[in-house]
Design a protein around this nucleic acid. Sequence first.
DNA 1: ATTTATATATGACAAATATCAGTTATCTAT
DNA 2: ATAGATAACTGATATTTGTCATATATAAAT
Lengths: 231, 231
Amino acid sequence: MSNKCEKCIVKKFTGLQTLSSEQLKCISDGKVTRSFKKGDVIFDEGDHLKGIYCVRYGIAKLSKLSTNGKDQIIKFVSNGEVLGQRSVIAQEPANLRAVAVNDMDSCFIPKNIILENLQNNASFTLELLQNLAHELKEADDVIVNISQKPVKNRIAETLIHLEDSFGVDHDGFMIIQLSREDISNIVGTATESCIRMLSELKKEKLIETSGKRIKIINRNTLQKLGEGIQH
Amino acid sequence: MSNKCEKCIVKKFTGLQTLSSEQLKCISDGKVTRSFKKGDVIFDEGDHLKGIYCVRYGIAKLSKLSTNGKDQIIKFVSNGEVLGQRSVIAQEPANLRAVAVNDMDSCFIPKNIILENLQNNASFTLELLQNLAHELKEADDVIVNISQKPVKNRIAETLIHLEDSFGVDHDGFMIIQLSREDISNIVGTATESCIRMLSELKKEKLIETSGKRIKIINRNTLQKLGEGIQH
DNA sequence: ATTTATATATGACAAATATCAGTTATCTAT
DNA sequence: ATAGATAACTGATATTTGTCATATATAAAT
């Protein structure tokens, strides 16, 4: 795996593609490759980030602690996506906590390089802008779903979304493996409720499980359920 | 009220401050002042926006229809704020519906002026970027609150937020007047539940009401309730 | 391989919220 | 000012979801 930014495939998925060769060289020289073990905290709510993390391999979850002590998962970030951009752009402390869902490799790009490009590189900034615009739309969707759909539908939707985002292995089980607690923290429900709903989905032959591993076996019905078309 | 952009006070609250005098002149010449009556739909989900709306006077609500037929209110936009920026930036159809909460005046700035500035005017783009970054943070907060706090707390928080955003009149009643249905669509609950909670807050002497008008009379306790400190 | 810890699962029950029905108040239009 | 329409309110009840207790399964550690 090359550690030259010019050759990194990740850049093609991010605003980094708009950086010039010299700039990429510069990042490449200054950058640090940071690896995290499953469960490691990449940054926490309130941290002052010194740069952004470009995920090369693995998955991170972004979450926020509620006053009731529950940790709401806001989104996942994986290969070719970027962590911490919002905070660096707004020059504010992180509003979310980032934790590695599995072992993870990332490139750390120092804040000053980002800020400099924000000043001088219009296409870079535009790219970030469209990134944020997309994230904002997704956040709006989450708000609607979480407030209007019953737990079971939200779980159905979450499973579809997780499969689409991270794919399945050779047996058809989803690549991403989350604890029941994580899933309940995505949909915003009690862990027991989440487990119950998964059991129902199993009984209804929409999914199969094997430990943490989950396989969708009736995608159509599950998807309709997630869209709230039927009970 | 001047209709020259160079002199418009609104520009100081928006990215428009970063436009040059010639650019402002250009917008001023090309722009259209658009007025809306209470309840008018400014744009709808799926509309292809031809520009953004800069609110000079009045308040608009942004909402999204759920599959269950309920309209989730995502946020409000008022004086000096901008409507439709996300869609124009992302060059996508609107993901939200915008409706005038009361009579409203706005300046319409055509898309091409925005897009051109996105290409050539780094400070303008940066300003928008920070705008979106802020909106994104707020959306994250909404997700956590709506999924983790009970209805009563969310209503308390909403009332505090509405008072802070739009202020009170000489009698201490909130300027913004929403229907009970609107309030329930902010917190994501049934209208009857919302009414019941407002009644409780009245009994507990945290608020007073007079028709649609609401006055906060024990801000401290209401705020603590909204923050989830106590039941 | 066996113990220990942690995660998953299920039942019984409590609490929160939604729904439905019906009443009263407020707004709107003539 | 009055009639009709719409919104606000309240009670009774159903449904959904959360909590607590406990059992079983899985993972981690010696």
